[in-house]
């Protein structure tokens, strides 16, 4: 039950890490790589605070073993901005007050990022079902939906 050496690309940078098989990806990201942007909420696959982009799909990183990420390409909230310029999704959350306490926000933004890749021009309902795996206890979702709409407009204008 020794450690396994895995290699994964996170936010464009390749990392080699030795992980115990039972280590969950969220712990590797936070504790081994120091990427604490992705949060741990429920730890039971419900809240989506730990959402990361995994080989082009949104996943809950509390429900994936780090050993399963060997060879994976991962994007976390830390990788959204480009050279200090906020990604349109981040800009949307700022402009439209898409957060209050901010706990759900990294997961919410990384999910919104992928949602807009899959569906660049979503309706309000598609946004709501698209982020249904991410819980927010503060905002009532209204401004999160507006933030995603803002990002969709900005991205399609680019």
């Amino acid at each position: 039950m020794g450690k396994k050496l895995i290699s994964m690309t996170v936010n464009g940078q390749t990392h080699e890490v030795a992980v115990e098989p039972r280590q969950l990806l969220i712990h590797t990201l936070r504790e081994e790589l120091g990427l604490t942007g992705s949060h741990i909420g429920c730890e039971t696959s419900h809240c989506g605070a730990c959402t990361v982009d995994f080989n082009g799909e949104s996943v809950k990183s509390c429900t994936l073993l780090a050993v399963q990420a060997d060879g994976a390409d991962i994007l976390t909230v830390e990788g959204l901005a480009n050279d200090g310029v906020l990604h349109p999704v981040q800009e949307g959350f700022t402009e439209k007050h898409g957060l209050q306490c901010g706990f759900c926000t990294p997961g919410m933004m990384i999910r919104a990022y992928r949602l807009l890749q899959e569906n660049p021009n979503p309706s309000e309902e598609e946004i709501r079902t698209g982020i249904s795996g991410n819980l927010c206890r503060c905002t009532g979702y209204q401004n999160i939906v507006r933030a995603v709409q803002y990002a969709a407009e900005k991205l399609s204008a680019e």
Binding site: S45, V59, R111, S132, G133
Partner: peptide, 9 residues
């Protein structure tokens, strides 16, 4: 079934 993230896996 479940939500988008769960359905991905």
């Amino acid at each position: 079934i479940a939500d988008p993230q769960v359905r991905n896996r």
